[in-house]
């Protein structure tokens, strides 16, 4: 598989076309806004946290296929996870994207999120994949805004 088709896999294209949990969460008690000044991508992540557990999660905003699919799959991944588990996923996802975690040889909890491993070959697109994760991380930690710069 070429690097390009590894980046734009069918799953990613599907999530881009039909993003899951793509709406504002009315009863959210955590919210953060993520911004990538390089391309103008902007998204909001909403969390409903109860007893340190992510009960509901959603996002809205605009961006490229990578950022939208990544946000969509992020919401699926952290839903019903504990705060600690969500943070672990954030950490592992970030390290995978940076090329610091080899998902084929090292133990991790990423599951199908490993399809984003391909971004390590596209440094210019790294932030597209990680923006929603940084925003989710900021929301968990009650920061209002996050920028990839």
């Amino acid at each position: 598989m070429s690097e390009l088709s590894e980046l734009y896999q069918a799953v990613i294209l599907d999530h881009n076309k039909k993003p899951r949990n793509f709406h504002k969460l009315e009863n959210a008690n955590r919210h953060a806004e993520g911004f990538n000044p390089l391309c103008g991508d902007q998204l909001n992540v909403y969390l409903q946290l109860e007893d340190d557990q992510v009960k509901e999660v959603s996002f809205e905003g605009s961006g490229c296929a990578i950022s939208k699919a990544s946000a969509s799959m992020m919401t699926q991944a952290v839903k019903r996870k504990s705060k600690q588990e969500a943070e672990t996923l954030f950490n592992e996802f970030h390290r995978m994207a940076m090329g610091e975690l080899d998902v084929e040889t090292e133990p991790n909890h990423l599951g199908k999120l490993t399809i984003f491993a391909g971004v390590r070959d596209f440094p210019a697109r790294l932030k597209c994949a990680t923006l929603s994760w940084h925003t989710m991380h900021a929301a968990l930690n009650e920061q209002q805004k996050v920028s990839t710069e």
Binding site: Y8, A65, F122, R125, C128
Partner: peptide
């Protein structure tokens, strides 16, 4: 319906 950054990468 295609973001400019996806076009650029492709």
């Amino acid at each position: 319906n295609v973001h400019p950054h996806d076009i650029g990468t492709i």
